[in-house]
Measured scan of single mutants.
Amino acid sequence: HAATELTPEQAAALKPYDRIVITGRFNAIGDAVSAVSRRADEEGAASFYVVDTSEFGNSGNWRVVADVYKA
């Protein structure tokens, strides 16, 4: 099962156990969220919340930071 994305309210009520950072070329924010979901799932997380997204220069590469939560 894939890790689910939390709302800001849900994330605020929970304590993350880790923070992950992924970088890559994403065509849309949805693609980045899917990549975070896969990584969170690999780490055994039940859910995640994207904290920050930023573009690296003009290369089209993105850096996505997310907190991950157990259950």
Rank of each mutant, 00 (worst) to 15 (best):
A2I: 11
A3P: 14
A3K: 03
T4H: 13
E5T: 05
E5N: 07
L6Q: 02
L6S: 01
T7Y: 04
T7A: 07
P8M: 13
E9S: 10
E9P: 06
Q10S: 05
A11R: 05
A12N: 11
L14M: 13
L14E: 05
K15C: 14
K15F: 09
P16S: 05
P16D: 01
D18Q: 12
D18E: 08
R19W: 05
I20T: 00
I20P: 00
V21R: 02
I22F: 03
I22E: 00
T23L: 11
G24P: 00
G24F: 10
F26Y: 07
F26R: 00
A28R: 11
I29D: 04
I29A: 08
I29V: 11
I29W: 14
I29N: 04
I29Q: 08
I29T: 05
G30E: 14
G30I: 12
G30H: 13
A32I: 14
A32V: 12
V33T: 07
A35G: 03
A35M: 08
V36R: 02
S37V: 09
R38M: 09
R39Y: 11
R39P: 01
R39I: 11
A40M: 04
D41L: 15
D41M: 15
E42C: 11
E42F: 10
E42N: 06
E42T: 07
E43Q: 12
E43T: 12
G44P: 03
A45Q: 03
A45R: 01
S47E: 03
F48P: 02
Y49P: 01
Y49K: 03
Y49W: 07
Y49H: 07
V50E: 02
V50M: 07
V51H: 03
D52A: 13
D52L: 13
T53K: 09
T53V: 15
T53M: 15
E55N: 11
E55Y: 14
E55R: 10
F56Y: 13
F56R: 05
F56I: 15
G57K: 07
N58L: 11
S59P: 11
G60W: 05
G60P: 05
N61G: 09
W62C: 08
W62I: 09
R63L: 12
R63E: 07
R63F: 08
R63M: 12
R63W: 08
V64D: 02
V65F: 05
V65Y: 05
A66H: 01
D67I: 09
D67G: 01
D67C: 10
D67H: 06
D67S: 04
D67M: 11
V68M: 13
Y69C: 03
Y69R: 00
Y69H: 01
K70Q: 08
K70T: 08
K70L: 11
K70A: 10
K70I: 09
A71Q: 13
A71R: 09
